[in-house]
Amino acid sequence: MDKVDREILAVLDRYGRISNAELAAKVGLSPSPCLRRVRRLEESGVIRGYRALIDPAAIGRGLRVLAGVRLVRHTHADVAAFERAIVRLPEVVNTHHVTGNYDYMLQVEVADLPAYEDFHANRLANLPGIAAVTSYVTMKTLSPDTA
């Protein structure tokens, strides 16, 4: 992967639906070589797919909470049971296995605080192996598009 490939990836990361002609112009290539590079990046698995970024508030998920989860035990069976359970919860948008004070950091999106309280008490806290959950309500999310 060279500098041009990295530029292509940076542009696609920010503007996923950009046309090939616009992408080529932004990275200083003609359209045909640009398309060949994009296809090579797709075929090699560097580009794993494309998706729409949806405004959570527009679909009734206006509250974003980051939840730090600690497990009781870290045996392979306990970790696997937790991971199987957490990926089935539609409110959990991302799950990160991390180091530090928590074992996992979750990005949870729900309608509002009462919805999170219900989710926390009735779904999250009942998952296998959870010792503790610490919740952080987000006030603002920054990204290159909002800066």
Rank of each mutant, 00 (worst) to 15 (best):
G45H: 12
G45N: 09
V46H: 07
R48G: 10
G49A: 03
G49N: 01
G49Y: 08
Y50T: 00
A52G: 10
A52Q: 12
A52I: 13
A52D: 11
L53K: 14
I54L: 13
I54Q: 04
P56L: 01
P56F: 05
A57C: 11
A57H: 04
A58I: 06
A58G: 02
R61K: 13
G62W: 06
R64A: 15
G68K: 09
V69M: 05
V69E: 04
R70G: 13
V72K: 13
V72Y: 08
H74F: 03
H76Q: 10
A77M: 10
D78V: 04
V79Q: 03
A80D: 13
A80N: 05
F82M: 08
I86Y: 03
I86A: 05
P90F: 07
N94A: 13
N94H: 11
T95K: 03
H96L: 14
V98M: 04
G100I: 06
G100S: 04
Y104P: 05
M105P: 02
Q107I: 13
V108T: 01
V108H: 05
P114Q: 07
F119A: 01
F119C: 12
A121L: 10
R123K: 15
L124V: 11
A125G: 13
N126L: 15
P128M: 00
G129I: 03
G129Y: 06
I130L: 05
I130R: 04
A131Y: 09
A131V: 04
T134E: 14
T134N: 14
V137E: 09
V137P: 10
V137W: 00
T138G: 02
T138M: 08
K140R: 15
L142F: 14
S143N: 06
